[in-house]
Amino acid sequence: MPISFDISGFQTDATDSWIDPETGDRVIVQYFALVPDLPAPLEDLDTLRRRLCEVHASSGSLIEASVISVDGQPALLRVEKMPRHDQPSGLLFAASIVIPKDRCSIALMMFCEETGTTGIREAVTMELLGSGNFFTPHPYAPDVQGQLPYNRSDDMEWDNALPDHPLTRLRRLVARIAPTIRLDPEFAALPPFRAERRRLQHALRRWFGR
């Protein structure tokens, strides 16, 4: 795997997978030998954010997305939430750092699950803000309605007040790991991702079915 990073405090769970024994938080790395499946170029962040909102609307909701630098390479950082399908209630919060190249990519994914009493962050935030200010249109795509509605409880400003919430833990994990990522020089030297190649690939699949 052409990537390394600080995974101290986690235990190896499987090949390229680690788990925090105290919280159950998980980190997974995957290499994809395919043209990256990004809906827009990193250079067009507004379009990329909107299209990611549309993509994640069917499974939950995009919380935030930004372009960051990883070991000197441009990368997409996105944070999303989705229902836990293995439990009657609770959410799964996920972050991914995708380093895309012309014909391949690396994704470092982090997962933090809501367990025990669920909905505390939402309840506290709604009580403080009032229901009228709690649900607001998504800042990236105001007209998109996701399976999980966008709401103010996901804002970073609440993290300090709720340090043990899975979304807070997730952001803390990203902030800890991202600066430690190092890429193999051969991977870093590959040609950069171009959205045009992805569009060409989709066109070829439509015409030839592959």
Rank of each mutant, 00 (worst) to 15 (best):
L38P: 06
A141E: 00
I97E: 04
C53T: 04
V124P: 01
N133D: 14
L92K: 06
F193L: 05
C104L: 12
F32G: 06
I63E: 06
P137F: 10
P142M: 06
Y150R: 09
D37E: 12
M109Y: 07
R49K: 08
P74V: 01
D159I: 08
E186K: 04
Q73L: 01
F5V: 02
G60M: 09
R152W: 02
I28F: 04
D46K: 15
L129H: 03
K81M: 14
R50K: 12
D16P: 03
L77R: 05
L167C: 02
N160F: 14
D102S: 14
S8W: 02
L148T: 08
A178V: 13
E127V: 11
A94T: 11
S58P: 04
S66E: 15
E127R: 14
I3K: 06
Q201A: 15
D6R: 05
L173I: 08
T115L: 10
M82Y: 07
S61W: 01
T118F: 00
P2G: 14
L204F: 13
W158R: 03
S4H: 10
L38F: 05
A65V: 08
R26I: 10
D86I: 01
A195N: 13
D71P: 04
V55E: 13
R51C: 01
D154W: 10
L167P: 06
E114H: 09
Q30G: 14
D6M: 03
D6A: 02
D25L: 00
S61E: 09
N160Y: 13
N133A: 13
F187S: 02
I177G: 07
R199W: 12
E43I: 03
A33T: 12
E196T: 11
D20R: 08
P21D: 00
A175I: 12
F32D: 11
V70M: 08
L200H: 11
E113F: 09
A178L: 12
N133E: 12
P83K: 04
V35S: 00
V144H: 06
A65M: 03
R171H: 04
